[in-house]
């Protein structure tokens, strides 16, 4: 058991992997960072599928660069996890390809239309920025440092998404309608991405107590709404929620709740789409296996 005095001590300053860290701290950090790592490695499968199908050379270049960035984020976080747990890269690859689907909800939905990757880059990489900016202070030093590089690149992803959406909104009526359908599809998934309110979050309070994270899920969702509702409306799109309202007095948004049951079942049990991503990575790994064989 860790006393609250010890918790405070741990969150008072950043710690390094070679220091004497309690098993409980290590386990909490590992759970959080492994989830982030797997998301960064599995997610880009969606993106690089769009490289050959993207409608312009520039869009192809953007998605080639973005998926390379994301895999780079994954690799950097894998190093962070390896120092926490002592597992090898091979063990982590096995865990990612064959293990339970511990990654973000948004990768469990199909990205079938060209607007899907663009909306994700715009809204969801934007949401990631909101979250990761607070992780620059995370008490686990190597994670906080990795976040500096990751955050810069997520900024590029967000701007690319915004640019691609802007292009489509300046296009034909069909293009604008397709973008609106995309926002309708992704709205609740994006709100859910931040996770349940902390009173309903299993690991949130401990991560906060350890200083591994600093902002509550709901606070992040609120600041994302403040930034993105005006952005969505400014390009001529509607936010698909009749209950959405801003209370000037409390400074808070009210909104229709995402389906939290669906959220937790995706995070716990996965989905056919998620399994397909893992399968595709497994296949790619199989094809290049000869590169890594030692004989």
């Amino acid at each position: 058991m860790t006393s609250s005095a010890q918790l405070k001590e741990t969150s008072a300053r950043q710690v390094e992997p070679w220091q004497d860290l309690s098993d409980d701290y290590r386990a909490a950090a590992t759970r959080m960072i492994e989830f982030h790592m797997m998301s960064e490695i599995v997610g880009p499968v969606h993106e690089f599928r769009w490289v050959p199908r993207a409608p312009s050379l520039q869009a192809k270049l953007v998605f080639a660069a973005k998926s390379q960035d994301e895999v780079g984020h994954g690799l950097m976080l894998m190093r962070v996890c390896q120092d926490l747990t002592g597992k090898s890269r091979a063990e982590y690859m096995e865990q990612i390809l064959d293990g339970p689907p511990r990654f973000m909800n948004i990768f469990h939905y199909p990205w079938d239309e060209w607007v899907d990757p663009a909306i994700v880059a715009w809204l969801i990489d934007g949401a990631e920025i909101e979250r990761q900016a607070t992780l620059l202070r995370s008490s686990y030093g190597p994670y906080a440092r990795a976040m500096r590089k990751i955050l810069k690149e997520e900024g590029f992803h967000h701007h690319c998404g915004r640019y691609l959406i802007g292009q489509m909104m300046a296009g034909t009526r069909e293009q604008r309608a397709a973008v609106q359908r995309g926002v309708d599809r992704w709205w609740l998934r994006t709100l859910a991405m931040f996770g349940p309110r902390d009173e309903n979050s299993k690991h949130g309070p401990k991560l906060m107590a350890y200083g591994l994270k600093f902002a509550q899920n709901e606070a992040l969702r609120q600041s994302w709404l403040t930034k993105f509702v005006p952005q969505i409306r400014a390009v001529g799109l509607e936010v698909p929620d009749d209950n959405l309202a801003y209370d000037g007095e409390t400074g808070r948004w009210t909104y229709t709740e995402p389906d939290w049951q669906e959220f937790s079942s995706l995070l716990r049990g996965g989905s056919p789409v998620g399994a397909e991503l893992q399968r595709e990575l497994r296949q790619a790994r199989g094809i290049s296996a000869w590169l890594f064989s030692e004989d």
């Binding site: 190093r79 090898s88 890269r89 091979a90 890594f292 030692e294």
Partner: peptide
């Protein structure tokens, strides 16, 4: 992949 080493 035991032959991998970590480089700073």
């Amino acid at each position: 992949m035991t032959y991998l080493r970590t480089f700073e």
